[in-house]
C-alpha cells in the first residue's frame, strides 16, 4: 500500500511540532444540491467548485434498510451510494462546500446528517421527470431548510413553464422557482445566490426572534 505523501510532510508525530502550528481551520458552510439521477447535480457542483468534484461513498446501513425496502425475496441488504461534492474558498477563514445528493426517498437516510448546519438547498429539476425530486422537496419543507427549485435548462428549452413546475411541486409561494443552466458557472452562481438569499432571510428572522 502506498499512500501519497508529499516529501515536505513528515509523518511521525515527533516531527510535527517543528513544522510550525497547523494553519487555523476555516469555518465550513455548506449548500446541498439535490435532484434525481441525471438532472445535472454533478454538473452543477462542478461548475461552481474550484476543484473537480470529489466523490465520497456512504453505506446504506441496516438502520436504513427499513426506509428502502428492497422487496420480498431480495437478498440485497446493503447498498453503496456515491455523493459528489465540491469546494469554494470564500477567504482564508471561510469555505463553502457544495454537496450533491440524490433526491429519492431511498437516500433520505443521510439527509438528516447532511442538512445539519446547512445554509440551504438547491433542488435541481428536470421538467421531464419532475417526480424525482418530490421526496427532497417534501423533506426540506418539513425540516425547515431554506430551498430553491432550479429547473435545469439542458438545451435552452423547458417542456413546462416555471409556473407549471411550481404548480406540479405544490410548493409555497415564497419558495423561489428559477431556471438555470448547470453547465455555466455564472448561472449556477446566480442560483446559489438565490439560495443564500433565502438562508439569510431565515437567519435574520431567527436572530430577531431571539432578541
Amino acid at each position: 500500500m502506498d499512500y501519497e505523501q508529499s516529501p515536505d510532510r513528515v509523518v511521525g508525530t515527533a516531527a510535527v511540532g517543528s513544522g510550525g502550528p497547523p494553519k487555523k481551520a476555516p469555518v465550513p458552510v455548506k449548500i446541498i444540491v439535490a435532484g434525481g439521477f441525471g438532472v445535472g447535480k454533478t454538473t452543477t457542483v462542478g461548475a461552481i467548485s474550484e476543484i473537480s468534484p470529489l466523490t465520497t461513498e456512504a453505506e446504506m446501513t441496516s438502520a436504513a434498510v427499513g426506509i428502502d425496502n428492497p422487496g420480498l425475496g431480495s437478498t440485497k441488504t446493503t447498498t453503496t451510494i456515491a455523493m459528489d461534492f465540491g469546494v469554494l474558498t470564500i477567504d482564508q477563514t471561510l469555505k463553502l462546500y457544495i454537496f450533491g445528493t440524490p433526491g429519492q426517498t431511498r437516500f433520505a437516510f443521510m439527509w438528516d446528517d447532511l442538512i445539519k448546519g446547512a445554509l440551504g438547498a438547491l433542488v435541481v429539476v428536470d421538467t421531464n421527470r419532475i417526480d424525482d425530486c418530490y421526496p427532497a422537496v417534501d423533506y426540506f419543507e418539513r425540516a425547515g431548510l431554506p430551498f430553491v427549485v432550479g429547473v435545469n435548462t439542458f438545451n435552452g428549452q423547458m417542456s413546462y413553464s416555471l409556473d407549471e413546475v411550481r404548480w406540479a411541486l405544490a410548493i409555497r409561494e415564497d419558495v423561489p422557482v428559477l431556471a438555470f443552466d448547470a453547465r455555466f458557472r455564472g448561472s449556477v452562481r446566480d442560483a446559489l445566490l438565490v439560495v443564500l438569499d433565502q438562508a439569510l432571510d431565515k437567519a435574520v428572522r431567527q436572530k430577531s426572534s431571539y432578541s
Binding site: 469555518v27 465550513p28 458552510v29 469554494l88 470564500i90 477567504d91 471561510l94 463553502l96 445539519k116 448546519g117 445554509l119 458557472r185 455564472g186 452562481r189 446559489l192 445566490l193 443564500l196 438569499d197 438562508a199 439569510l200 437567519a203 435574520v204 431567527q206 436572530k207
Partner: peptide, 22 residues
C-alpha cells in the same frame, strides 16, 4: 462549530464571496 446554524454575518460573507466570482 459552536453555533450550528450559520449567523447572518457569515451568510453575508458567502454572498459577497460568491458575487465576486466570475
Amino acid at each position: 462549530l459552536d453555533n450550528e446554524t450559520p449567523d447572518p454575518e457569515t451568510i453575508m460573507r458567502v454572498i459577497r464571496g460568491l458575487r465576486a466570482i466570475t
